[in-house]
Design a protein around this nucleic acid. Structure first.
Lengths: 136, 136
DNA sequence: CGAGTTACTTGACAATCTCAAATATCTCGG
DNA sequence: CCGAGATATTTGAGATTGTCAAGTAACTCG
């Protein structure tokens, strides 16, 4: 690989490290683990079956059972029957869970400091480059 | 937060997700966990005391003991005495570990596909923006 | 020398993850 | 309609990662 691409990969690695760290910190502030925060954040967008959570998070469905168990025990999530298929359980955030998810999103400071360094034009350029990099 | 910054954060979240996924995949191809791959990659740059690994990875030193144990059991890493301080154990990759670390780095495809989309000028622009975002 | 600090390990425990097996339910061909 | 096979979820075993508290060995400095 050319040195320029290598440098960019290196930088992205650093961004990934910082983002992850920040995400875990924000989750911990709400006494959540990273995995719990990710599931809750997903459900805050839209309730969904266990299987779909596993698919989005790229892990085994049996893993999701435990994570949702813990979120449910804390009253942040509930399992609802799917009217169309009795095998399926829809995981949905409770009002409390929705509040927590919103708080969590707001307390993800990652954006603030690092992006404040950039002008609006630079942020636009960054957005477009990332978009292109991630594919159409 | 303004909509533009929000969009950039969203995109960075996606990049982080893809990078992480790719990293785990590359590690798994070498029968390593992500944590083991991160420690091995760190030691491939430079042997260092257990404590320093923990500091770089932002976890407890007692955690590193187990990870290095497993890498050592597979012959990828060895513990050496520090001539200057008998309390300290320097973790260093074996020749085999160094080879694995190099293979691992090369098989991190993340860069290839996504960055191939960008021209050299765009990659330069991306590099500079990321650099600025990450601070001087 | 000796009190306090530092490096690493150990042990207990929680969370995450995988895999295989069990249960309940759905789907579809015959 | 019935039964074989597929699908959704859970359970249980086991590995790994992570924390914290305590223990051991070695360093530092007055």
């Amino acid at each position: 690989m050319d040195p320029l691409s290598l440098e960019v990969v290196e930088l992205i690695g650093t961004v990934v490290g910082r983002y992850y760290e920040e995400y875990e910190r924000a989750a911990a502030e709400h006494s959540l683990t990273g995995a719990q925060a990710r599931v809750l954040g997903l459900l805050a967008l839209e309730p969904m079956p266990m299987r779909q959570i596993a698919h989005k998070l790229k892990c085994e469905p049996s893993n999701i059972t435990g994570i949702v168990d813990r979120l449910e025990a804390r009253g942040l999530v509930e399992r609802r029957p799917d009217p169309a298929d009795r095998r399926v359980k829809l995981a949905a955030p409770t009002p409390d869970g929705l509040t927590t998810a919103t708080d969590l999103r707001d307390s993800l400071n990652f954006a603030r400091e690092p992006l404040a360094e950039l002008s609006a034009e630079e942020r636009t350029a960054l957005r477009d480059l990332l978009k292109r990099m991630l594919g159409a």
